[in-house]
Structures are given as C-alpha cells and as structure tokens.
C-alpha cells in the first residue's frame, strides 16, 4: 500500500506550523481573532504556490480540514474572480486553524494538492463538480456528487437562483 509523501513522522505531537515557512509562499499573512472568525491565521496565496504551502502544512503535522470554492464573479464584476478556500488544522493541542485563500481568474486551472494531501482528492472533485474549477495534476478529476452527464455546475451564482432574501421566496 502506498503512503502519502509526508516528510514528518507522526509520532511526535505537532508544534504550531512555523509561520516563517509560510510567509515566503503567501502574498499576505494575517493573524485573526479565532473568537470572532474561527481562524487563527489567514494566508492569501497565489495559485502556483498552493502545493508548496500544502507541503509545509503536512510536514508540520497539519491535516486538510476542508477545501472549497466561492464564486465571487458577481461581487466584483469588473474583476471577476473565483476564490479557492482551504482550511488546515492540527490534531494535537488547541486548535490552530489556517485559512488559505487563492483568487483565480474564471477558467484558470489551479494546481492540485492531491499528491501532498490525499484528502484533497474528493474535495477537488467536488469543487470541479460544483464550480467547474479544474485542477492540474489531479489523478481523476470528474464529477463526484452530481450525475456524470450533468451539464451544469450547481453552486455557480448564475445557476438556479431563486428570488433572494425574502420570506415569500419559498
């Protein structure tokens, strides 16, 4: 059986990930108040550095908690963007949740982090299924939740919206 390419042994409890390892990879890193947001750190990354960021996190003993996407094309119509979102957390000690966001142009292909974090396999398939974002290097990028012959990406904002906001909308 294969083992994921992890550089650290899992025997020792993980210390918090060294922020000095992350800052060169992120366009910006901020510390946030977890009491308000639930995140301890927020990193804004550029697409090419995602696999390297993932490697730093897995080496420090973190696990990929969640990977998703946001369709922000209608928020800033002048500069339409899709935003990839990852959260990383650790098993040992108090939670230390890192939010990694990455802005993509519509149609831009993101690098897959499946080789570093196998958990990303299904999450990336889900993002592809729901948002149509493609991942380069994913071993098997196809739909996961919707039927294979679907011709839409369900969570795009211009698909299947009903009148927003009012109680009468049901």
């Amino acid at each position: 059986m294969s083992t994921p390419p992890l550089t650290s042994t899992d025997a020792a409890p993980a210390a918090p990930v060294d922020l000095a390892d992350l800052t060169p990879l992120a366009a910006s890193s901020t510390t946030t108040d977890p009491k308000r947001t639930g995140f301890h750190h927020h990193h804004v990354a550029l697409a090419p550095s995602l696999p390297e960021l993932a490697r730093v996190f897995t080496s420090a003993g973190y696990f990929l908690e969640m990977l998703t996407c946001e369709d922000r094309r209608l928020i800033t119509p002048a500069l339409p963007k899709m935003r990839l979102v990852q959260t990383w957390n650790r098993f040992d000690g108090p939670a230390d949740r890192h939010l990694v966001t990455c802005e993509l142009d519509p149609g831009q292909v993101a690098p897959s982090i499946t080789a570093v974090a196998p958990a990303a396999d299904w999450y990336e398939r889900e993002v592809f299924d729901m948002y149509g974002v493609r991942f380069a290097g994913h071993p098997d990028l196809r739909r996961i939740l919707l039927p294979d012959d679907s011709d839409f990406h369900a969570l795009l904002k211009d698909f299947g919206q009903m009148d927003r906001g009012s109680e009468e909308g049901t």
């Binding site: 996961i144 919707l146 369900a154 969570l155 927003r164 909308g169 049901t170």
Partner: peptide, 17 residues
C-alpha cells in the same frame, strides 16, 4: 461512488435567509 443522496443543502443555504 457517492452523490446518490445529494439534496443540495449548500445551494439551498444560498437561496434563503
């Protein structure tokens, strides 16, 4: 193979308050 019980909770959340 999953998705046979997909009920679109996340889409519903974006469609109601």
């Amino acid at each position: 193979v999953i998705g046979y019980a997909h009920r679109a909770h996340e889409k519903m959340a974006e469609n109601r308050n």
